[in-house]
């Protein structure tokens, strides 16, 4: 049986706050320190949907149906926080040789599990090396 359509309205909102900060310090002779950090907090979701009442006739005839859409908004909620942090140092051994080291740290927090499961986790990279210059 067919009783037309039912239509409600959804309100969707995306809110993102993004911060970045950093500094460069050349304070100690031949050494440069750099620090940079980024923090992003993002949420995207829609509000609970209020569907209109179904007619009595349709409700009776479609008795096996469920017209409660009040929780469908929760299936696709997204809420992520991401932190990127980079610490770096360069030390000039002489005019042609520089030693560099860097630490990269990334943390991803998944506060609303979607179809990919909980994606919360961190990754870090430690780098070091020497640059030689020749003219």
């Amino acid at each position: 049986m067919h009783y037309g359509s039912l239509m409600g309205e959804m309100d969707y909102k995306t809110v993102v706050n993004s911060f970045s900060a950093g500094f460069t310090f050349l304070g100690i002779k031949r050494t440069v320190f750099t620090v940079s950090g980024n923090m992003v907090m993002g949420e995207a979701e829609f509000d609970p949907v209020n569907m209109p009442e179904v007619s009595d006739e349709a409700e009776q005839e479609l008795e096996a149906a469920n017209f409660d859409y009040s929780e469908v908004n929760t299936y696709s909620d997204l809420s992520y926080n991401r932190l990127d942090l980079t610490l770096g140092a360069d030390y000039s051994i002489d005019d042609e040789t520089t030693f560099s080291a860097e630490l990269i740290y990334i943390n991803f927090a998944d506060d609303e599990v979607y179809v990919y499961g909980d994606q919360t986790g961190s990754l870090y990279v430690i780098r070091a090396g020497v640059t030689f210059g020749l003219r």
Binding site: G4, S5, E9, M10, K13, V54
Partner: peptide
């Protein structure tokens, strides 16, 4: 960033 919009949720009976 704050972005909001609306959309229908329609379903056939």
């Amino acid at each position: 960033l704050n972005e909001s919009l609306n959309a229908p949720l329609a379903v056939a009976l």
